[in-house]
């Protein structure tokens, strides 16, 4: 028996709305749960002290520093490579087998599991290049991980620049380089920045790749050759080894707040970019 189209329409619509509501409720329940359990435990001391007794007491200052420094290294390395690749693909070449290979590589990199990045970073940076467990090893591994994100978003951003701008700049005696510096980069900047911010978000949230490359030392790192424990790694260890639920919640809440800020920042940039390009 076939259902009456009007009834099937009603059922489908209900199911679809229900699914969307389930997803939203799920998301907000996770976030609100972590925040409500964690925020009360975020104290001034928590933010400014180094962990002691394996993280049972003290704060997470060294982990905050670890997260920031690993992320900084990754961003500083991946940004020029990613943006440069995007400019090569859009401005310096025509579609060819070479661009296909480059795009295929970037898309494949995007799919590689973070644990495999961790394995690679461990054997290549930590062992082979003798960088040891360090901020540098962790940052370089993460740089490879966020490279595809930056390439893709930058390429999209450059594509949205009005094609006549290039022509006008060339017609006024501008060279390719001048056109890039004065027209393309400023116009595509919010889009490029969005890609970088998304990359930063991934670095902050990453655990598997960092734990194998930056290590899990609790001491305050003193240089990029020091090992470091990031907040995500710290949270993982606290929670998995049941060291301190209280501190685990506080760390998770801080991570979520950071991710929220990063996401809101990216969205503001996207909206500004969309408003500008119309």
């Amino acid at each position: 028996m076939r259902l009456n189209p009007r009834i099937s329409q009603k059922i489908a619509k209900t199911v679809i709305w229900f699914a969307a509501i389930v997803v939203l409720v799920l998301l907000f329940s996770i976030i609100i749960y972590i925040l409500s359990k964690g925020i009360p435990n975020i104290t001034w001391q928590f933010l400014t002290e180094i962990p002691s007794d394996m993280g049972r007491s003290g704060g997470i200052l060294s982990c905050i520093v670890g997260t920031l420094s690993v992320t900084l290294v990754a961003t500083v390395v991946a940004t020029p490579l990613g943006v440069g690749t995007a400019f090569y693909l859009t401005e310096y070449t025509h579609e060819s087998i070479v661009t296909k290979i480059i795009r295929f590589s970037a898309e494949s990199l995007a799919g590689i599991p973070s644990i495999v990045y961790g394995l690679f970073g461990f054997i290549f940076f930590v062992i082979y290049l003798k960088l040891g467990w360090s901020i540098l090893s962790g940052g370089l591994t993460l740089a490879m991980m966020i490279l595809p994100t930056i390439i893709r978003t930058s390429e999209e951003a450059i594509h949205t620049v009005h094609p006549m701008y290039r022509e006008v700049s060339f017609s006024l005696g501008g060279t390719k380089w001048q056109t890039m510096i004065k027209i393309l980069i400023p116009s595509a900047l919010p889009g490029i920045a969005t890609g970088i911010i998304l990359g930063i978000g991934r670095c902050v949230a990453e655990t598997a790749a960092v734990i194998l490359t930056a290590g899990s030392a609790l001491q305050m790192p003193v240089s990029i050759f020091s090992p470091a424990r990031t907040m995500a790694v710290h949270f993982y260890i606290l929670a998995r080894e049941s060291i301190s639920l209280e501190k685990a919640f506080a760390t998770a809440a801080l991570l979520i707040i950071l991710i929220l800020i990063i996401n809101i920042g990216a969205n503001i940039l996207v909206n500004r970019f969309v408003a500008k390009s119309h």
Partner: peptide
């Protein structure tokens, strides 16, 4: 050009 295009 035909279409007036001020740079941004």
């Amino acid at each position: 050009f035909e279409i007036p295009t001020p740079l941004p």
